[in-house]
Design a protein around this nucleic acid. Sequence first.
DNA 1: CTGTCCATGTAAGGCGTTACATGATTGT
DNA 2: ACAATCATGTAACGCCTTACATGGACAG
Lengths: 195, 195
Amino acid sequence: MSLRHAILGFLSFQPCSGYDLKRAFDSSVQHFWPANQSQIYRTMAELDEQGYVEKEVVARKERLDMKVYRITDAGREELRRWLRTPQPPQDNREPLLIQVYFGGHLTDSELLHVLKHTRDEACERIRVYTAIYETVMSQPRSIDDPRAVFLATLTLEYGLIGARALLPWLDSAIERIRAGDYTLKSLSQLIGAAS
Amino acid sequence: MSLRHAILGFLSFQPCSGYDLKRAFDSSVQHFWPANQSQIYRTMAELDEQGYVEKEVVARKERLDMKVYRITDAGREELRRWLRTPQPPQDNREPLLIQVYFGGHLTDSELLHVLKHTRDEACERIRVYTAIYETVMSQPRSIDDPRAVFLATLTLEYGLIGARALLPWLDSAIERIRAGDYTLKSLSQLIGAAS
DNA sequence: CTGTCCATGTAAGGCGTTACATGATTGT
DNA sequence: ACAATCATGTAACGCCTTACATGGACAG
């Protein structure tokens, strides 16, 4: 149930409409918690019912009404409670690993095709994250709380490191399949290759 | 829709009952594709309707009937088709990163508590994966196809490398929060720390 | 006699996705 | 004239989880 709390998080910065929130998600946490518009509107209605947010309808002449949501004291408390509670590790499903696990049914070239495709995607992600990282670092940032900026940047670092960790694994797998070398690596070799 | 194909994958090794499949999942791919029993029974019924598997009811005197599913030629074809198709990258949601991103609301010690908890879990996962890896390596394995064994082991390597990649990130985050050092790392520092 | 293993399922709910629907304003 | 931006939602479906229900055999 992190979506509720991500929404409360954004509202803790400033009151937002559903539309504003959607943009906030897309421009910041979408890499580790994508949210779509229907979901946001539904969840905000729930948060409203539960008293974690307040709705204010802003009538705008000649336009549709806009609903601005504001976090309540109860909402702030709930947010803080959740933020400091370690979350149970959630299993991330990896279709690629299913493909590798049952890859005995594929030829070398079919397998290599899948692995190379994954490698290209990892490189692309690294490129994107690197570009964002450079943009963040080149900004002045005199107004903002440096601790909050640091924490936001940590999530970017996570994405970068995660994508980079994939490469040695992919490269070693590709190499070994190409060479037809199906011997298992010793643990020390594995760790050496990973670091 | 990888569950369907994981099931077809197991059935490509040998015919199974729903119960057998559940155990197969739990003892092999559960790290990257957990499946629960209800889901398995429902999906097998679908695969049966679609002609990818065949059902054989085995009557057992004095016991409940057992339904053994066998993959069909159409099922094998569908499995191979899917296995060689690169899957769209699916976004893995990370509650921890939501907690870090909005961690400005927490005190240092609250944040550190969450991060240390995550670190403990990562260490535990490394221990578990390492133990499995050692077991696999110490087994004789004369009968099995070495290529298939190699591929299955690759998925273990993935888990190990992934969990290990977390540690430097966590350690550096913990260190910096402790030191109150909110300066952003340069890209070269980041990459140096990750490798 | 209690629990675990074998073996089957149903029911309900939660979270997420995709598609559809409306409607004014602003930019190309 | 057409698309994009601003702004709201509904409907339906898909996948996964949790809990419930049944029932014999066998071990401690």
